[in-house]
């Protein structure tokens, strides 16, 4: 049983040691925004404030699935020397300071150009638990998941509101043979960073529960969750939520390392309380 499975299982039973909270909180941040050392501190702060899983974003020049907040963060991170290598260094430093599971989150080209085998090996050594590659759908990810599985790592699939039943069945089938620590249900059509309407998030939560039933994997809801109230609605029937842009915006607005850490602690604590 992998580190993510373990953490999610304890969370679901309310045995995470922080009170009766049963919904998982996955926190995203873009590594290298504003700089590498800052990202390590911010990721650790997320974990300390109650994030169960850390999604460490590898900045990419052309983040087509992301909205303006994460796109700007990616640009800042690339300017500060961010990329695959910097993200792996952040992962290693975070792993040395806290036990929270790490998902390496990004776009495929940097992985492909470096070579899947090399990246999987470097990520395993850095203490990464799973990959989430936005533009690598199930049909294209067979080699990555095979290589990742050989090192005990999972590949997390996305499900969208438009995903046909056969796509979800395919995830269920893949999950029998490869580690899928959780499924990421995209609450709404669009890019990251929007504000999801309550009814949309509530429906996403119901759909996530349905996906979890079909795949036998915990399913979390992401996209459009910008507040504790939204997180509560989205998590209602799901295993938990992913929050990205809301955290990234706090980092963007912070004027000093201390201010950024305080702001991130505050939002993550609020989210944790609501879940």
């Amino acid at each position: 049983m992998g580190r993510i499975d373990d953490v999610l299982a304890r969370r679901a039973l309310g045995q995470a040691g922080d009170g009766p909270h049963t919904k998982a909180l996955v926190a995203y941040l873009c590594c290298g925004d504003p700089d590498e050392a800052g990202s390590v501190d911010l990721a650790v702060a997320c974990a300390e404030a109650g994030a169960d899983v850390l999604e460490l974003g590898m900045p990419f020049s052309d983040p087509t699935a992301d909205g303006p907040a994460i796109a700007r963060a990616s640009q800042r991170a690339l300017k500060s020397g961010g990329g695959l290598d910097a993200t792996l260094r952040v992962a290693r430093a975070v792993r040395a300071r806290c036990a929270a599971p790490i998902v390496l989150f990004g776009y495929y080209n940097p992985l492909f150009v470096r070579g899947e085998e090399t990246v999987v090996s470097l990520a395993a050594e850095a203490g990464v638990d799973a990959f989430l590659v936005v533009d690598l759908p199930l049909d294209e990810s067979q080699s990555l998941r095979t290589r990742a599985a050989a090192r005990g790592m999972g590949v997390i699939p996305l499900v969208a509101p438009t995903s046909r039943p056969e796509r979800i069945a395919l995830i269920a089938e893949v999950a029998l043979r490869f580690p899928i620590p959780f499924v990421y249900y995209v609450s709404m059509m669009g890019v990251t960073g929007g504000a999801g309407a309550t009814d949309v998030l509530a429906e996403a939560s119901r759909q996530a529960a349905h996906v979890a039933k079909l795949t036998s994997r915990p399913t979390v809801v992401g996209f459009g969750i910008d507040s504790a109230a939204a997180a509560k609605v989205a998590a209602a029937e799901a295993a938990g939520v992913v929050v990205g842009s809301a955290i990234v915006r706090r980092i963007e607005e912070g004027t000093s390392p201390e201010a950024r850490i305080d702001a991130v602690r505050t939002i993550v604590s609020e989210l944790r309380e609501a879940l």
């Binding site: 087509t64 699935a65 495929y108 936005v134 533009d135 690598l136 759908p137 199930l138 294209e140 699939p157 996305l158 499900v159 969208a160 438009t162 995903s163 046909r164 796509r167 995209v186 059509m189 669009g190």
Partner: peptide
């Protein structure tokens, strides 16, 4: 090579 949201 696209997000699942575009597959449909």
């Amino acid at each position: 090579y696209v997000s699942e949201t575009l597959i449909h």
